[in-house]
Computed example of a mutant assay.
Amino acid sequence: MGKSSKDKRDVYYRKAKEEGWRARSAYKLLQLNEQFGLFNNIHRVVDLCAAPGSWSQVLSREIFKNERSDAQIVAVDLQPMAPIDDVVTLQADITDPRTLDKILHIFGGEKADFVCSDGAPDVTGLHDLDEYIQAQLVLCALRLATCLLKEGGTFVAKIFRGRDIDLLYSQLGFLFEKVVCAKPRASRGTSLESFIVCIGYRPREGWKPDLQPELSTEEFFQNMDIGRARLHEDLRVDYEERKVAPFVACGDLKTSYDSDASYSLDTKVTHSLDPVQMPTDPPYKRALEMKRQGQLRGK
């Protein structure tokens, strides 16, 4: 949420600064919770791809607002994150088995009630490529979730709705009692972004997830019997089952803003607002240091 971003014209961008959220995405999780009651009776929570930490902020404020001292929240990201009250932050890779071990150690060997991921790649504008990379990121989060979630737990992740999203819906349907595609009002209507809400985790009978780094996503799920295509020796193909998940728009029309609309500012408010949390280790940090030292020269 930098000052020069085009997002400064967005009402959610400004409200996030006014209310102390690190990013406008906080409202997406708040609206998802408003629709599905995600935070009811949860004690152990894992926020994947968490940086800069707006979802972890929401989880901390909502879960601990009733002073529930036994709750635990773990936030994981490859990028460093500034501390958040009541949240344990791990700078780690979600595909690494050591990350799973660290989380389970924090939870005292207990399984999680809720796993979420708001992660997304830097989009290229090539929709097919962006959708594929995002789907792989979701599957990586799902791999870890199958190792972490207790039976009946909930998984929420950002998705890009594209041509083959019905295959992902179908596969998630083998693992959860209820799968819904949700679009919060804080998510721009012009974006492919939506969120898959998976409720009631059902571990596959006879299958034990094994998070080995050398296994591809395909290999991890291959013996899980979740409707994936299979080529037999005689060249027969078992095609994937495909389903369409119910679609829900989230956010109260009376209290939520339209992210694609323009709103007038209070006439008394004319100044810009600084970011709630400056980046801890941004990719451009080294470039700025080199520029200050005169090591960068323009053409």
Score class of each variant (00 low, 15 high):
92 A>E: 15
84 I>G: 00
24 R>S: 14
252 D>W: 13
124 T>H: 15
83 P>A: 10
36 F>C: 03
230 R>W: 13
111 K>P: 08
222 Q>T: 06
109 G>Y: 10
168 L>T: 02
105 H>D: 15
130 D>V: 04
273 L>Y: 00
187 S>E: 09
191 S>E: 15
18 E>K: 11
101 D>I: 02
21 W>V: 03
62 E>Y: 09
40 N>S: 00
20 G>R: 05
118 D>I: 01
199 I>P: 02
246 P>A: 14
30 L>G: 01
12 Y>L: 02
208 K>F: 10
296 L>S: 11
293 Q>L: 14
109 G>C: 12
163 R>L: 06
91 Q>H: 07
138 V>F: 10
280 T>S: 05
61 R>C: 02
171 Q>M: 04
136 Q>L: 14
23 A>V: 08
93 D>T: 09
81 M>T: 04
259 S>I: 01
268 K>I: 01
32 L>S: 14
270 T>I: 09
112 A>D: 09
104 L>Y: 04
192 L>M: 10
170 S>G: 05
45 V>E: 02
67 E>N: 15
184 P>N: 12
122 D>N: 15
13 Y>F: 11
240 E>N: 09
293 Q>E: 15
282 P>F: 03
38 L>C: 13
38 L>P: 14
276 V>F: 06
42 I>M: 02
214 E>T: 14
259 S>D: 06
114 F>S: 04
69 S>N: 12
239 Y>E: 14
154 T>D: 05
83 P>H: 03
19 E>I: 05
288 L>Y: 07
151 E>I: 03
118 D>M: 02
98 R>M: 15
33 N>P: 13
198 C>P: 03
11 V>W: 06
254 K>L: 10
249 A>C: 01
3 K>I: 08
53 G>Q: 12
79 Q>N: 07
86 D>L: 06
35 Q>L: 01
296 L>R: 12
